[in-house]
Design a protein around this nucleic acid. Structure first.
Lengths: 326, 326
DNA sequence: GGACGTTACGTGCTACGTAAGGATC
DNA sequence: GATCCTTACGTAGCACGTAACGTCC
């Protein structure tokens, strides 16, 4: 058994049982892969792929049994390479961050600027997506870290770190009846059409829960995936916006009235996810601490080393208390 | 990077940084390993071992970082080989069971006889040890399964399966004042010197707890690791024995009086441990079900697939209810 | 001097690429 | 006929064994 062979198996599966595509992707020849698979099957004594004629159609029973092990092996090989890179060139490499528009637009710019000046040799890649996509990208190793307020708990092999707590504000046109309201109430909001986030983004359910608890009907006329879009429609007078407080930018949004809503809704927690068993390069620890100062290297290591999920949750709750409120 | 090279690294560490010993153990030449290590270090770009002169003294920082990944890779390679063996020859191979004297002597004989006749091609190996040693042997993969009533929870990557519940009996010489006691009480036991298990074996603490709860003093004159030794001293008249009920064998122990003590002590649960992420051969599932009929393949798979420790405990508790009382 | 690791070197295996052949849709 | 896998074959590289050579306790 060779690591190459396992890599071939993995890539063939990833390419939907297509050896040619796998060969292209791995910059090698198709017959090379073909013969290596055969060799591996001979060595193990069972066929990994089911063939219809010469075409591979699916994994055999044995193939299905072994594929999880294969993936774990390749993941660990990746870890070892990361360790090597880190020792060889601690200040250069890649950092792939999967995150939502909200984080990328409002929470990350300052951090990324600071990080880039500290690590000019590290190229940063921001992958945007829905929280579910973010969780998946992180779980598969496509991204080094994922940042979102939801859905990260969906994958068993992600470790969650609480970064900061945040709450919402209401945005209205300057001439709106609510614009000069001193202390906003849910009841007041309920009188007007509302524009806010779609479900699955930015912990939208917190908003609904608040209104439901007071038996108020929330009249949502439009939902969008990000605050910029929401603000645009608030400007057209379609309704008032409920967005994350950090999405209000005095410099650009001076034409809108902003009303704090921190007393109306439960704060949400934005978390950072890393893959369980992933070895993190030194600069990743630095990035994390820049983003959430209480997440020191020790804290991250502690959480990541905790196999017990319930203990992980305990620690998460403990460190939420240290998370800044924005 | 080659799997061979990783195997070399692992074996060198296991042999206390001795390349020669590793070469002997792996049936290869010492210079071969030496050069492969060098090659790997060149490829990764860092030294894995710290050398004093030519002697390897310890793992370098990078070596320490990578060794966990190396071990995980080798474990998964092992799993793949197991899968292959199972497909190639489903009814032959090895089954290593780490267990205590009590299990090996009283609980397992019937099971093993049945298993052996069902799988004549599988060679069974019983490794005896203390519960802690059993847990360790199972966690390192030295044993396929571990069976004990204690200590198995000590290792994070062991999954526990509840097998059966059991309780204790009191053994006395036939002419002992207690011999004809109809319904035994703790108070009655407390009047006589007692011989029972040492701590760390057979859930001894249950006995102490029962007496402590009634503010009774237990006069333990001798403790031993197994019931055979305890019975021997009971025969000499040194004291009365408290042993697992299953340790009383009417055929051999007819010279002793046996008094049930199930109403005096909490039942204990004997568990079976398997390694998390270990792929189990088919006959292992059969063995487990022979030993504990409620542990069907589905149940075992369910428990093993549960990464969440607290969920694992919930499931454990659920299946304890199905465990036979002996 | 004994234990241990490195260097040097020859050999046989094998991974991989190219080219051609065959199956399947 | 396009797509995809297998077979055939030559080559370059490398793992491994043997033997000889440092080096540290």
């Amino acid at each position: 058994m060779k690591l190459r062979q396992l890599q071939y198996v993995s890539e063939i599966v990833r390419q939907g049982m297509n050896i040619t595509a796998a060969a292209d992707r791995l910059y090698t020849s198709q017959p090379g892969i073909s013969s290596q698979i055969k060799r591996l099957e001979d060595e193990l004594g069972f066929t990994i792929f089911v063939r219809r004629g010469k075409q591979l159609t699916e994994l055999s029973e044995g193939g299905r049994a072994m594929i999880a092990s294969v993936e774990r092996i390749l993941h660990e090989v990746d870890n070892i390479h990361r360790i090597a890179d880190d020792i060889r060139a601690p200040a250069s490499g890649n950092l792939v961050i999967a995150t939502t528009h909200t984080q990328a637009r409002y929470a990350l710019p300052g951090i990324i600027k600071e990080f880039s000046s500290r690590y000019p040799g590290v190229s940063l890649h921001l992958h945007q997506g829905t929280p579910t996509q973010i969780a998946e990208m992180t779980a598969t190793g496509e991204a080094d870290i994922g940042i979102a307020t939801e859905a990260l708990y969906l994958f068993d092999d992600l470790v969650l770190l609480p970064c900061y707590r945040w709450n919402r504000c209401v945005l209205t046109p300057k001439d709106h009846p609510l614009a000069n309201n001193r202390r906003l109430s849910l009841k007041a909001i309920a009188r007007y059409p509302v524009i806010t986030y779609v479900f699955g983004i930015a912990d939208r359910s917190v908003i609904n829960r608040a209104f439901a608890e007071q038996d108020l009907d929330l009249n949502v006329v439009l939902t969008a995936a990000d605050a910029e879009v929401i603000k645009t429609y608030v400007r057209t007078g379609l309704g008032i916006g409920i967005v994350a407080r950090m999405a209000y930018d005095p410099a650009q949004d001076g034409d809108l009235a902003v009303l704090d809503a921190g007393h109306l809704f439960d704060p949400s927690v934005t978390s950072l996810a890393i893959r369980h068993n992933a070895w993190l390069r030194n600069y990743v620890y630095d990035f994390i601490q820049l983003f959430a100062p209480h997440l020191t290297r020790d804290v991250v290591t502690e959480l990541q080393a905790t196999a017990d999920k319930s203990r992980q949750e305990e620690l998460f709750d403990k460190y939420v208390a240290h998370a800044e409120l924005r």
